[in-house]
Write a protein that binds this DNA or RNA. Structure first.
Lengths: 198, 198
DNA sequence: GTCTATATTTCGATAGAC
DNA sequence: GTCTATCGAAATATAGAC
């Protein structure tokens, strides 16, 4: 550890993360990646044998970044309202730091549904579902709870997925962050109402 | 009209719509498009001088399909609750018929924010905003109304944007349509609660 | 590890016969 | 209009010197 080559690889992976999230798998070209990482294409293939191998590393981390901790919180012993507030904070924190995450993940899965199985969403989905199911007994209650979780996630994630449009709607790109911070409180507030609908 | 060549062009455009929505601008290759439209690349460039020209036609229609009628409904003389219900039905109807629409539009705008200006969103955004603003007098009320509209749109659109994930969460891809139909009523119901928060 | 050079394929687009 | 043939550029990936 601490070797110069580690720095090179780390810079490569960081650059790949940023560029894949910006352009998607098809949009990013290895040449640009090499340039922005201050290396050349040869070295690039030394660290990752193919574009797909590099992409999968980036995509897997993105998935974990987007879904990690949610199932755990749903399975916790917190009150439902607390759970929702924790999840809301979790999403607003992460997405404020990384707004391109949702569009990247959703778009790549849309274009290549195989990613669903390849990555460990094969674990995440059943985990989430069992987390949701374990909250309730009857099938009807399970479905209601699923609607609640989906609503909360929708309200948190969608503004980031639609960020360019929303920025233009607000009129000033710089106001987006401020708007989103206000929205965090708004979503927390209405999550309470959604719970009382259960 | 009614000429054989019109049929050829129509089939080309239809195929382009389907494939661009499936793979995005970078993901779709002209060769595959020509094959699936049962023509060749030469003829393809006869109808559209470049890939970009063809894409813009498809994208513009997608934008209209995704946003058309919303501002008009917001500007109508309906009661707020009616407006929201109309918009909810509008989105669930359109997206059930064309589930790939949101991810396509949001992803392409994300990758190329210039599309924001190129297409007539330059019209749509101020139009939407003025539609929202015209509902209320004070700035505070305008922002509240914006939150309401954003919430309703989020609840309608997000399940389609996350369709592959949601399908897996439900367990059966075939159940997605049924789930979404139930969700239409759920969203209408909570839209009423959101309005009372104004 | 890191580089240059190159192999190989595929891309978007054009030329020109019919 | 529709086709075949092909151009030139750009793509991913590999080979081999250092």
């Amino acid at each position: 550890m601490g070797k110069k080559s580690d720095i090179t690889k780390a810079k490569l992976v960081d650059t790949a993360k940023a560029l894949f999230l910006e352009r998607g798998f098809d949009g990013l070209k290895m040449q640009e990646l090499a340039d922005k990482a201050y290396i050349n294409k040869g070295l690039l293939h030394y660290y990752f044998k193919s574009k797909e191998a590099l992409f999968q590393a980036v995509f897997q981390e993105a998935m974990e970044n987007l879904f990690g901790g949610v199932a755990e919180e749903l399975l916790s012993d917190h009150a439902i309202e607390t759970k929702m507030h924790v999840i809301i904070d979790l999403y607003f924190d992460r997405l404020s730091a990384n707004p391109g995450l949702p569009i990247f993940v959703l778009s790549e899965i849309h274009k290549n549904p195989t990613l669903n199985g390849l990555i460990n969403l094969g674990d995440v989905a059943p985990m989430l579902m069992s987390a949701i199911s374990s909250q309730m007994d009857k099938p009807e209650e399970i479905e209601s709870f699923l609607h609640l979780v989906l609503s909360v996630v929708s309200l948190c994630v969608f503004p980031f997925a639609a960020r360019p449009l929303l920025s233009q709607l607000i009129g000033d790109v710089n106001k987006f962050e401020a708007f989103v911070e206000k929205r965090r409180g708004y979503v927390k507030n209405i999550s309470t109402h959604l719970i009382s609908e259960l």
